[in-house]
Each structure stands twice: as C-alpha cells, then as structure tokens.
Design a protein around this nucleic acid. Structure first.
Lengths: 201, 201
DNA sequence: TGGCTTATGTGACAATTGTTCCAAACCAAC
DNA sequence: GTTGGTTTGGAACAATTGTCACATAAGCCA
C-alpha cells in the first residue's frame, strides 16, 4: 500500500513498522478541531474533507485530501507542537495510515520523505490561496456551486445526501441563504432537489 | 547578517557565496504577481508586504514578512516550478538577500536549513488560516482595522501615508466603502484622518 | 493667482446577505 | 392514522456592501 506512494524500501519498512492502519466510516470524524495531534493521517483510500473551525465553532470548508495525500495542517501542528486548527471528516469510507507525530522529523533523513512533505506543503499552500480567492472574490452562489462540485468529485457521485443546514454550516452562512440559492439553481436546472438530497446536473 | 539567522558555518558560507544583497526602497515592488521566480527573498531588515493578486488584478492583503523571514510562496513556486502567485512590496526601505531558487533544494542537506524551511511553511500556513478567518468571519470594518494595525506595526509608526483607494484595492472593495468606514472610525476616535494620511489612535 | 490633478465627502439607490418567523412537507415511530 | 421531529419553502425586513453621479477640498505648478 505505501509502496505505491514511496519507493525507498527502508522508508517503507519504517512506516509500516511504526504506523497503523485504521478504517473510518463515511461521515466519521478523523481529527476534531482543537484536539492534540498525536498522529499524522496519510490517506490510503477514500477521501477526507478538511474544514477550518475556529474557537466559536464557526466553519469554513477548505479542501479534500485524497489517496496518497497527507494533511499539511497536522504536519504544521507537529512542528509548532500545537493542537489541530482544522476538523477532518471522512467523506467516503476511508483507509488511513496513522503516522506517529514524533517520527515525522526523524524521517527527514530520507530524501523521498522530504520531497513528499515539501510537495504536501506546496500543494496545500496553493489550495489555501484558492480558498482565499473563492471567498474573497466570489458571491455565495459561486461558493456554493464550488462546494457541491468538490464534494461530488470526492464522492465520485453527482448525488449528495446532505441537508441545507449542513452546507450552511460549512460555508459559514444561514440555512435560508442556501435554500434560496439552491431554489434559484434548480430553476436554472443546475441541480435537482429532494429531501436530504441534492443532485448535480 | 545571516549569522544571526543561521549558525552552521558551512551553510552561512554557502548562502553568502551564492546570494546577493539588494536594497529596496519604500513602496518598491520586490516580486510582482505572475513573474518567474528566480530567487527566494530572505529579509535582512525592513518589512515586506505580501498581497495575493489574481489574473484579473484583484487583490487581497495577506501578511508581512519581517527580518529573518522568507517567503513561503516563493519556496512553493520553486518546487512547482511555477510563477509567483503573489505580489511583494517593500513596506519600509528593506535589505533583502536574494537566494538562487535552484539551490533551495540542495541546501536541504543542512538540518538547520530544513528546520528553517519547515518553520517558514508552518508559520505562513497559520497566517493564511488567519487570513481566511478574517475574511470569512468578519465584516469590512474589522478587516480594515486589522489591515491598518498590521501596516502600522510593520512601519513601526501610527501614521500611515496612504490613500483610501490603495486600501480599497488591497482589501478588494470600493473606495467609497473605505471612506465611509474611516469616517465612522474617526467619529469613534479610532483614527485621525487627513489627506494622504491616516493616524491610528 | 488661477488652473489642473488627485483625494475625499455625500447622497441615492441596487444587490447581496443576515435575521426572524411561521407554514408546509416529509419521515419515522407509535 | 396520528403524533412529533426534522427539513424545506417563503415572506418580510434589516444590515452591509456595491455602484453611480457629482460636489468639495487640498495640493501642485505654471
């Protein structure tokens, strides 16, 4: 499994020896905001949704972590010895390799690991900038469409089982606003609505 | 100069040998958005303002780079071999060490350099999250106050020589909005206004 | 001084989003 | 079927921000 991500046999052995695999169900919380980081999650299969959550519980959707990717926030927390600044939810049933936080730095002796971490930071940095673009430059309708598309992509399905309230929470707005916009989108035939379901067209 | 940031004599020597120091005047552009990254800036003295700028020229203020710090975006661009996604402006007169982009990876053999880069990513990641919090959770009045405070801090002066239009650009809003909010802030005795000047109280 | 440019003030109105409240529809358990 | 909880629809209004048009003021320079 890890040998599809890494190739150095020593690194692979170290990872396999020191980490354990865990399966998360759909919608299960992988990391909750504010919790202490004791492991860094490496996604083997499935998809993890990453959401910023502040101390008051206000949320903003950030991005998804897919197979072969790891969480830059967790790495971040490891070096600052801090707590998680984000919430991670299993979007689909997912297999995750839990890497012990204290070994992350040690493994820097492997060039492949360094490159991987570096690449993780670079990718997520770009994603965060795109989030900033999205919320700074676009109205809620575009943000909503982006959110639905990203989640549909992660699920690999155009049908989202979700309530308007859940969307409103993760986009940090009101349920009525989401309902209004979805109605308009339905009139434009961008989506088909049902109770607990939104189908992208 | 670099030996206040780094301690490994070999690393210091390599940096000094391969980089060159350049002085930027106040308000001079250090890196313009979209330009090819050929060096990574390391701030020796002064302060650099980092602003996101998209293809349409729309801007969002991100944060400042102070003495001893480097630009995570540039590092990012080096590994992705891409162009700059941000604009960097000298907030005060600043001395900058220009590190050749191609050596960044090579220097990873020095643990101190790895730690520095890692720490850079961690710090900027946190800053970007704070930017997201700021624009997602706060109205323009709080954003404006935050912007003025940050710039005053970087300048080490409570008097900002700046027009309403410039603020509006970097906060991605309209001049009239900034004028309105500043007037209200003046009534609340948070600022004192003049032509081309805003004094924080 | 007078004329020009730039910066700011002001009002009116539109668009978007936030907020409140209640009705209607749907679903599940009894 | 009835009851009760959850989800969604819809109206009305407030608050914030966007947009336009134009007035006023301040500084620069011939």
């Amino acid at each position: 499994m890890t040998n599809s991500i890494f190739h150095d046999p020593k690194l692979i052995e170290e990872i396999n020896k020191n980490s354990r695999k865990k399966t998360f169900l759909k919608d299960e919380i992988v990391v909750s905001s504010g919790s202490e980081i004791i492991f860094v999650p490496l996604v083997i299969s499935g998809s993890i949704r990453i959401v910023r959550q502040d101390l008051d519980g206000r949320e903003v959707f950030l991005y998804h972590l897919n197979s072969g990717q790891t969480c830059a926030m967790s790495l971040n927390c490891c070096s600052v010895k801090g707590n998680s600044m984000i919430k991670a939810i299993s979007e689909t049933e997912s297999e995750i390799l839990q890497l012990p936080a204290n070994l992350i730095e040690e493994w820097f002796k492997y060039p492949e690991w360094r490159a991987f971490i570096n690449n993780t930071y670079a990718t997520r940095f770009t994603e965060l900038l795109q989030v900033i673009d999205m919320i700074a430059f676009n109205n809620m309708d575009k943000q909503l469409l982006n959110y639905l598309s990203k989640r549909a992509e992660a699920l690999n399905s155009k049908a989202l089982l979700i309530t308007h309230q859940q969307i409103a929470d993760e986009l940090h707005t009101q349920r009525e606003v989401i309902s209004r916009l979805l109605r308009t989108m339905e009139q434009k035939e961008l989506v088909k609505l049902g109770r607990n379901i939104i189908e992208l067209i």
